[in-house]
Nucleic acid binder design. Structure first.
Lengths: 252, 252
DNA sequence: GTTGACCTTGACGCTGCGTAAAGGTGTAGA
DNA sequence: TCTACACCTTTACGCAGCGTCAAGGTCAAC
């Protein structure tokens, strides 16, 4: 079964403009193009559009959707299972919103009292969800991500102790990195201290540690602009230096 | 309890920039401004922000949110009940998406077969939801709205017979309006025929008819740019002419 | 051949912010 | 009192993800 733009748009509940835009940015290319120039979409494209719409439902930016779908280890089945997990979480949040609105109705009818924090239950989870969609829960788990976690902790009122500990470790790590960069030696004491702290910092996300994964994270920091920017904002070249320090560290 | 920008932003799960923007567009003004220029939000603003976030959750444009919240007959309790209705509908759609993803998983595991249409169950409802949030379900019910309904029917595969009938009546009405405008007489046979057809068209949305409401709709067509544009796109001045014709019609 | 629905490309514009710069304010600690 | 840091302000640029429109070509039914 093949579709031209409008037909597929109707089928999927999107606009034809959206499909052309997705073609333009390379997110969803037509299966083939007629000599007339018409875009023709087939089974593969239909399936891919479904995946796109599931991710879009979560608020994931289109560029990232493309990256996920184009990655080497993409599997339709695994991705559908992931969608299911996300949708179940979204369902929980919706239940929270419903609880919130019921409580707000009671308060408005004068039956109960509601504090300001409770009035926003569910909305903060939306912020978290969008953060996760943007940065990817998988990415976070694999590589750690201070920006997202600080943001999430802020919203979710993570325990003070836990949040403080993460913060302290990170600060110490940055201090050690600065000293290491001053010394200019990725294998020096300060740099290796930073790498160890980084390892400790990762334990908040990992169930178990292994050096290869640690090195992989370090590579990611340099390869991915978001991470690189985070560290280089502290000091130019810090992401690269940290990567070097970690590579030395994991070889011990 | 009072909040500065960041504090309220954290509480509500939005950004400080968002709050400044809402102030800028008049959607959410601070309760007061310190001599320093700092925005200070109080209880009233907290409640209003909650309402804003509920509407935002539905995809309603900010300008329209402001219009609703600023209308004379705004009532916090009634609005909360409306939010509840919307959230319940959204919950249904989420259930559909979950059903869809389960079916897709079965299909991907080779257990079942899934047609293309089913792959997009739930996503089309999203389009409908956003249309309703944008145009307002209440507005639709009160005044009828061909553009939204055609769009919705398209997505929801409304029965062919019903959709055809709406379409036919509308076409006949436009034809009669053209003839009436050519004759230049809102009270003439053609114009009155158009008004009668318009009344018939409205019966798709109204449980009962009354002339005052019909006249009110006609006024709305001229007062609201969206409706005016829809008719004037057919022919310049058509909205105004239709209004005249209807006012004559309802006086009989 | 005609007509109307659909297709293309190109282009402008919009909503709702994110980000950054420059400079002022508030508060706790030395 | 001074300092440092977190927070505030305004201004301004830019962007994602389209919606809308124009001009012109294509397709299929009558």
């Amino acid at each position: 079964m093949e579709y031209t733009v409008q037909k597929l748009a109707e089928l999927a509940g999107v606009s034809a403009r959206t499909l052309r835009y997705y073609d333009e940015i390379g997110l969803l290319k037509p299966g083939r193009i007629r000599t007339s120039g018409y875009r023709i979409y087939g089974r593969k494209e239909v399936d891919r559009l479904q995946q796109i719409l599931f991710y879009r439902e979560l608020g994931m930016p289109l560029e990232q959707i493309a990256a996920v779908l184009d990655s080497r280890d993409f599997s339709r089945l695994e991705t559908l299972k992931e969608h299911r997990r996300h949708l179940l979480k979204k369902q929980q949040r919706l239940s929270q919103l419903l609880t919130n609105v019921e409580a707000s109705i009671s308060a408005a009818e004068g039956e109960t009292v509601m504090n300001d924090k409770a009035k926003f239950e569910g909305f903060k989870k939306r912020a978290v969800e969008e953060n996760e969609a943007k940065y990817g829960e998988e990415v976070r788990r694999k590589y750690g991500d201070a920006a997202v976690d600080r943001s999430n902790a802020q919203f979710l009122s993570m325990t003070e102790e836990g949040a403080d500990r993460i913060k302290r470790i990170e600060e110490e790590m940055f201090t050690a990195l600065e000293a290491g960069m001053d010394a200019g030696d990725p294998g020096g004491e300060a740099a290796q201290q930073a790498a160890a702290l980084h390892r400790e910092w990762l334990t908040f996300y990992w169930d178990s540690y292994n050096p290869e994964a640690h090195a992989g994270v370090a590579d990611m920091y340099v390869a991915d602009d978001r991470f690189k920017a985070y560290y280089d904002k502290q000091r130019e070249g810090m992401a690269q230096f940290l990567r070097h320090a970690i590579h030395v560290y994991v070889k011990k």
